[in-house]
Design a binder for these strands. Structure first.
Lengths: 193, 193
DNA sequence: TTAGACCCTTGATTTGAATCAAGAAATTAC
DNA sequence: GTAATTTCTTGATTCAAATCAAGGGTCTAA
């Protein structure tokens, strides 16, 4: 049982001594999920926080027309969670689904709270990592209503092109906030340049 | 020097013993800013985190066309900060501006890090408060590209109508992601219903 | 190997918000 | 109190993306 992907990720953001990491690993559980399975559905209460060792998850919303909108995709070394629901035992409006077969590290509420309150670098890691998500969301929100679909796709190519290889296009359209038809036309247009 | 607004806010989210609060207050500085003043500009490094005792701040982005998009407005008992820049000493792309004369509590980097690492309920408050912002941003991102301008304005009326009293309409338009003309027409249409 | 489901592309049409333009109203400054 | 600036409204026009519709491609499972 090694945890080097997790340790690498923690140390990418904060100083994380070995002794603290040894306190953290027993709090984790390694799980497998199949492509298509849900880890969280709207109306559920989130019971775990997930670290991705392998695979891809998406977090998405279903709007009033029944359409799905992807908030983000997370791959290896990313975390996926809904902490508001997790910390308050309140139902969430968000969904989390595996888009590939995944290997995950999961941590439950009791252990997570233990880690945050008893392992200081773990708390600081979470604050920092959350803030990065926060910043990304703010930027995307600022762009969402301004950029044209073509600009959004170009930005996606520049910043997240690795996702293009592993996800179907209709999922990317639901992430960029356009119809699959529009995405298809943009790709045709840009490809021919 | 009382801090009851801040204490109320902290206790709204976590259990915050008096002894911890007494450790926190000396870390704060009370400041006044005039309407229109900037607390953070794109390209700056964020040096302080602000708690609003009175007034209204906005956080906004300037996009490639030079247009401003408001990410959110914060009023009394809200926090306004850009922690990615603050924690990494990196330049930010976000702006923070006072939309009214404000009275704020400010905390600098050294003191904030001290508080997070030495006052456990302060760390937990920040994690929880951040997550609420995070959740709000995710929901708004999911809605931004789906809802019509009229739906956005109706949602705003339901959820944030208190802001309507104190902000000019063009700021609200820049928050909802539409032109002032469109907002004006929607208001006319809805008002006559 | 083939049937079925799912995904992607392409075309025709519609529509609603942005843009352009101008004037009215409200606020600010002197 | 008046001028100047800013903000808000209304109208006419344009245009780009959604919608509607259908056909082709790809993958999967029996």
């Amino acid at each position: 049982m090694t945890y080097y992907l997790l340790l690498n990720e923690l140390r990418r953001i904060v100083i994380f001594p070995d002794k603290d990491f040894l306190k953290a690993t027993p709090l984790l559980e390694r799980i497998q999920v199949k492509k298509g399975e849900h880890l969280l559905k709207a109306g559920d209460i989130s019971r775990k926080v997930y670290f991705i060792e392998e695979g891809c998850l998406r977090q998405y919303l279903i709007n009033s027309n029944g359409e799905e909108r992807n908030i983000y995709f997370k791959v290896e070394c990313g975390w996926c969670s809904e902490l508001v629901s997790f910390l308050n035992n309140s139902p969430t409006e968000l969904n989390i689904q595996a888009l590939e077969d995944c290997q995950l590290l999961a941590i439950n509420q009791k252990n997570w709270i233990y880690a945050v309150t008893h392992i200081p670098p773990f708390a600081m890691y979470f604050i920092k990592a959350q803030q990065q998500t926060n910043y990304m969301l703010k930027k995307r929100l600022g762009e969402a209503t301004v950029e044209t679909p073509e600009e959004k796709y170009t930005r996606f190519l520049n910043e997240e092109s690795h996702l293009l290889q592993r996800l179907p296009l209709f999922q990317i359209a639901a992430y960029l906030g356009m119809t699959p038809e529009t995405l298809s036309r943009i790709r045709k247009k840009i490809g021919s340049k």
